[in-house]
Amino acid sequence: MKEENLKKSSLDQLNQIHSMMEQSTRFISLSGLSGILAGITALIGAGYAYLIISKAATVENPYMMRLSMHTIKPQTIRELVVVGAVMLIVAISIGILLTLKKAKKKGQNMWGKTSQRLLLNLTMPLVAGGIFSLILIHHGLVGLIAPVTLLFYGLALLNASKYTLHDIRYLGICEIILGLIGSYFIGYGLLIWAIGFGLLHIVYGSAMYLKYDRDD
């Protein structure tokens, strides 16, 4: 009997050690729901962008699935950039708001060492990707921008997975694969953006919601 108790308390201690190590190194309050909403936002954005683009449809390319930059007017590109920026701001705001709520519930500091480390490691590859995209525009390689953003986003997630829920790693790997496919089949930028930022976020967010949030 005494041995049983000793075993149980040893197990308790190991669990406590694990939880303290994890809580002090990983920011685990990311909300699954915000992933789903970010995905929906991205899909709405992609739908709207498609409406803008399809105005430029021609007889040879009636559905405008495969885009060529020569057929798109600068005015259209400007509109697309605005749509993209608005969607990004909406998705990030929702994410911050829901994560704030979850962190409060979990008693994890929203602006502590763990969240700062997460943000830093997420941002660095993203900034590199942003600058690289601008360089692509400079060289007129517009068709590569969509796949490149997915590629760098995936690398950023992979890098950040050491500082938050481990599962985000798989989302990162999927984005990288999608980015590579997209950079081979140039011209389907909107489609792979819709898959990468829309569909994958919804799938990932739902999985995280079921795994971590439901029982809170």
Binding site: Q13, Q16, I17, M20, M21, E22, S24, K113
Partner: peptide, 10 residues
């Protein structure tokens, strides 16, 4: 135990 766990991981 908690303090040491945190200081081992960080």
């Amino acid at each position: 135990l908690g303090v040491m766990s945190i200081l081992m991981a960080n």
